[in-house]
């Protein structure tokens, strides 16, 4: 583990929860040996009115944090845990841009269809793939309405130590679980120059995200499916 990270961890242990950037509140880091709590429901609010079309700081931060750096000839076979989508309303011509990733559904279709139970939802609502028992059938990729999952099409050697990932398994955004467990927000939220991605505990009425969600109009993508997404958008 690198020295700055050690420092950060010590800092967090001492302080508990602090705000390191406007709009991003830290959550209490999990203590050694304590499990993720079902009292917590992690979520994210994306303010698309602040999101600029040309910017992909979140995507780059995700790639660096999670080691998504392997080159691939056909981009359609490469992993993208988060991507920027540019939208144009066909009726009105209004344009905007937003980041799209795993929506961490309350009722995730990927978890329902997974034959082995490799796709699962943690107590705190984070949807993950257990690569130890993923057989690579890709049924979850057929089932995800957000195209949020990628299949690792080639052998990897450049994984980051805290983010194991490998050939033949399906993967997706983890809300940077290695960071959230330490009390940090996901890398994308930290990196957004506009502070457009607000991460926190939806269940805690005192959290910044819960307060904002109470004030502003937000939407879930494909709300018609009633999946109870953990990610919400403002200004779609």
């Amino acid at each position: 583990m690198s020295a700055p990270e050690n420092k950060r961890r010590a800092f967090l242990a001492a302080v508990g929860a602090v705000a390191v950037a406007p709009g991003i509140s830290l959550i209490a880091p999990s203590q050694a040996g304590t499990a993720a709590s079902s009292a917590v429901r992690f979520g994210m609010l994306v303010d698309t009115t602040k999101c600029s079309p040309g910017c992909d700081a979140c995507v780059k931060a995700c790639a660096a944090e999670n080691g998504l750096v392997e080159p691939i000839a056909d981009l359609r076979q490469g992993s993208q845990w988060i991507r920027k989508i540019d939208l144009v309303d066909t009726a009105t011509g209004r344009q905007h841009s937003l980041p799209m990733m795993c929506q961490h559904c309350a009722k995730p279709p990927c978890v329902d269809v997974c034959p082995t139970g490799a796709s699962f939802k943690r107590a705190d609502g984070i949807v993950l793939v257990d690569r130890h028992i993923c057989i690579g059938c890709r049924y979850c990729m057929m089932a995800c309405p957000y195209k949020a999952r990628s299949f690792v099409h080639q052998p990897l050697t450049t994984q980051n130590p805290e983010v194991p990932r490998g050939l033949g398994c399906v993967e997706a955004c983890t809300f940077c679980v290695q960071r959230t467990d330490r009390g940090l927000a996901p890398a994308c939220a930290d990196a957004c120059p506009q502070g457009a991605m607000l991460f926190g505990d939806l269940n805690d009425p005192q959290s910044a995200i819960a307060k904002r969600l109470k004030e502003v109009a937000t939407t879930q993508v494909r709300a018609d499916l009633k999946l109870g997404t953990g990610v919400r958008y403002q200004g779609i």
């Binding site: 690198s2 993208q80 990897l156 194991p164 490998g166 033949g168």
Partner: peptide
């Protein structure tokens, strides 16, 4: 196959911008 076997490894800067 999935875990990084090298000590102190940090993935190099994005070799190919996926974004």
């Amino acid at each position: 196959d999935c875990h990084q076997p090298k000590a102190g490894y940090k993935a190099a800067a994005v070799a190919q911008p996926s974004g």
